[in-house]
């Protein structure tokens, strides 16, 4: 009966708390940072341990590492072209940072660091900075012709150029908001339905029967969240590739 008077509290799961005891709280090392470190260590561990056996017929971990490597490499070369190889490390790191963030968030008591706009915005700003610097290095000042598509009438330039510049500047926002909104929406939904289960189960025998429906829905939602975790990491990586393609080839 203790939970009776409480409203559904779906957002407290996103609060930052210091991790690692006294050391963490003195340097503001939060659980988000902790999970970022865990994500990095897991990715490095997967690759190092996966590459160790060097078996011709790969084991499970080696197959995982090889699949990850080859699929991202193919994404780079398919989307960017043969030059995509040089950007492979960047895209690979981004993909696994986002994917590990999304997947670690699916564990109980874990924290989803991709559910913070500060994190996703930082990633998106990094992407847009890299893309712009790459374009400026390859094309020099010719890069600015990107904002005026060839063949458009010259008289429309005062209209087209601001629109294209705004469209270019809106990329980091849409990139970060997409990932952030997907993760937040998923976790809020899970929390809300989980709270329904507890509330209904607390309401007596009929409530226990009624609690089966939100519980079943939550089971489905968990599966859906795993799909979203992979899909959003994939979308983040492939959009980075598409932007890199634009900056390597212009237009």
């Amino acid at each position: 009966m203790a939970a009776q008077g409480q409203a559904i509290d779906a957002l407290s799961q996103f609060t930052l708390t210091p991790a690692l005891g006294v050391v963490g709280s003195s340097v503001n090392f939060t659980q988000a940072n902790l999970f970022m470190v865990i994500a990095g260590l897991l990715t490095i561990g997967m690759l190092v341990l996966g590459a160790k056996p060097r078996a011709i017929v790969p084991g499970r971990l080696q197959a995982l590492a090889e699949l990850a490597y080859e699929n991202i490499l193919k994404m780079c070369t398919d989307q960017i072209g043969p030059e995509g190889r040089s950007y492979f490390p960047f895209v690979f790191t981004l993909f696994f940072f986002v994917l590990m963030g999304n997947l670690l968030g699916m564990l109980p008591w874990a924290f989803t660091y991709t559910s913070h706009i500060a994190v996703t915005m930082a990633l998106a700003l990094l992407v847009i900075t890299v893309v712009t610097v790459v374009a400026l290095r390859i094309h020099g000042l010719h890069f600015f012709s990107y904002f005026f598509p060839p063949g458009a009438p010259k008289a429309l330039a005062p209209l087209i150029i601001p629109v294209e510049v705004i469209s270019y500047l809106s990329r980091p926002l849409s990139l970060s908001v997409r990932l952030f909104a997907n993760m937040v929406a998923g976790h809020v939904m899970l929390k809300v339905f989980a709270t329904f289960v507890v509330m209904m189960a607390g309401a007596g025998t009929i409530g226990v029967i009624g609690a089966a429906a939100p519980l079943a829905l939550n089971v489905i939602l968990i599966g859906f969240e795993f799909l979203v975790a992979f899909l959003q990491a994939y979308v983040f990586a492939i959009l980075t590739c598409i932007y890199l393609h634009d900056s390597v080839h212009l237009h």
């Binding site: 908001v177 909104a181 997907n182 899909l231």
Partner: peptide, 21 residues
């Protein structure tokens, strides 16, 4: 659903950036 979400985000983010500018 994914497509609808993408379209919505693209529309709103361009507007938000422009209004901020």
């Amino acid at each position: 659903l994914g497509m609808g979400m993408r379209v919505g985000i693209e529309l709103v983010s361009a507007l938000a950036v422009a209004v901020a500018i």
